[in-house]
């Protein structure tokens, strides 16, 4: 029965990687959100599969907490706090064009395999699997998403995708993380959404845009000069 579970887990983590790519490239804000939800579902699926494979009950908790917080509560909270029309927005000019961004993303994935190698060699064989390298890739791609996107919501989703990546690697390495910690981290994710949503709303009201990547007032000005207004 175990090869089946391993294969299914490989499938789930592979799809996880694809969603991370999608978030780099997807222009529609709503599409980005849907990809993030899919990614969270895949993370939960991987947790359940690993839980079955190694009969680690704590991982079911990870899956349930993940589904409730990221698939149900998070989109609801985002809709409550962030301005509504943000979903209909479409980013036309990204910092990099999409093919270049995807190529760099590909290079990051290869890099993460090399980064994961020494770690994989250090742990017991049962911890080896696709989760660790793909988790690191998810972390790096999330960070990359933040650098190339300018809209507030994709930036926020990039932050949360970094956390998803850390967790995908974490469930393979640290199977017996206490449930309390899981719950606290999930709550923390929701507070992140709330605070960023409130900030986005304030920025939209005050500055008139949600393309937060374009704000650049705070710089060093030559001594004696006025700050650009």
């Amino acid at each position: 029965m175990t090869p089946w579970l391993d294969n299914l887990n490989a499938l789930a983590t592979g799809l996880f990687l694809l969603t991370a790519f999608g978030m780099v490239a997807m222009r529609q804000v709503r599409g980005c959100l849907n990809l993030f939800i899919l990614q969270s579902v895949l993370l939960a699926a991987s947790a359940v599969l690993l839980g079955l494979r190694y009969s680690a009950g704590d991982l079911y908790g990870v899956a349930i907490v993940g589904i409730v917080s990221k698939v149900i509560l998070l989109p609801w909270l985002l809709r409550k706090t962030a301005p509504a029309e943000i979903y209909t927005r479409r980013e036309v000019d990204q910092v990099l064009n999409i093919p270049t961004a995807l190529l760099i993303a590909l290079a990051l994935v290869i890099l993460s395999y090399f980064l994961a190698l020494p770690l994989l060699n250090a742990v017991a064989p049962e911890f080896r699997g696709p989760n660790l390298p793909i988790g690191i890739a998810g972390l790096l791609l999330g960070a990359f998403t933040i650098t190339v996107r300018r809209e507030a919501v994709p930036l926020l989703l990039g932050l949360l995708a970094m956390e998803n990546g850390a967790f995908l690697a974490g469930i393979a390495l640290a199977r017996h993380l206490p449930l309390l910690v899981e719950l606290a981290i999930a709550t923390d994710g929701l507070i992140v959404v709330f605070i960023v949503g409130v900030l986005t709303r304030a920025i939209q009201k005050q500055v008139g845009t949600t393309a937060v990547g374009e704000m650049a007032h705070l710089k060093e000005t030559p001594a004696g000069g006025e700050a650009p207004r």
């Binding site: 972390l139 932050l159 970094m162 850390a166 974490g170």
Partner: peptide, 15 residues
């Protein structure tokens, strides 16, 4: 962003 990297670090430490 930093916290995301640190979270991974703490999970590796746990491992």
């Amino acid at each position: 962003m930093g916290a995301g990297i640190a979270l991974f670090g703490f999970l590796v430490l746990f491992a």
